[in-house]
């Protein structure tokens, strides 16, 4: 039997429903809440059951589905992975080097990853944009943007 998209989707959601249902029973309640018609566990448990049942129906009917076998050829997972890592690094950099420097680096690396190699374009499309956006936020809209722990450590400010 070959797995099609519906089989995989059904299995994923069945797992989600089982795990969600397991933790739904772990939700703490106030004493006596279990005798109330509605408590903090009611909806999560109902959702876990509903999700599980629909997943099972999906798995049962997946064989008849017209959904093709998933193909992963010609998909650039490597580049997407790099971009996701870049976004994650941007999140870390924000608190260490501040918004302005993090933005410049994010844009520079982002353009580079997507194939832009001209130094002039890389710099012109990142530094003026980042500085302009930072000025708009910090000076025009008066939004406080923390300068970054690293500068505070180095400069002692």
């Amino acid at each position: 039997m070959t797995l099609n998209k519906d089989h995989i989707g059904g299995l994923i959601f069945l797992t989600i429903a089982v795990v969600y249902g397991y933790f739904a029973h772990d939700i703490r309640m106030f004493p006596g809440d279990q005798f109330e018609p509605f408590n903090a566990q009611t909806l999560p448990i109902a959702l876990a059951w509903a999700g599980g049942l629909i997943s099972l129906v999906m798995l049962a009917t997946a064989g008849r589905s017209a959904e093709p076998k998933p193909t992963l050829v010609n998909l650039d997972f490597m580049l997407v992975g790099k971009l996701m890592v870049l976004v994650w690094l941007f999140a870390q950099a924000l608190s260490w080097i501040g918004f302005l420097a993090a933005t410049i680096l994010f844009l520079l690396v982002g353009y580079w990853l997507l194939g832009e190699r001209r130094i002039r374009t890389l710099l012109l499309a990142s530094i003026p944009f980042a500085v302009g956006f930072w000025l708009l936020l910090a000076k025009v809209l008066d939004i406080y943007l923390a300068p970054g722990k690293l500068w505070q450590l180095v400069l002692g400010a």
């Binding site: 959702l47 999700g51 999906m58």
Partner: peptide, 26 residues
């Protein structure tokens, strides 16, 4: 079925956090 599952998934995500009725974290 996929849309129904996604709707339920959205409802599940909505239950993350403090319960608005009892104040209990879920």
């Amino acid at each position: 079925l996929k849309a129904l599952l996604m709707t339920i998934f959205g409802l599940m995500i909505a239950t993350i956090g403090t319960d608005a009725i009892s104040g209990i974290p879920r």
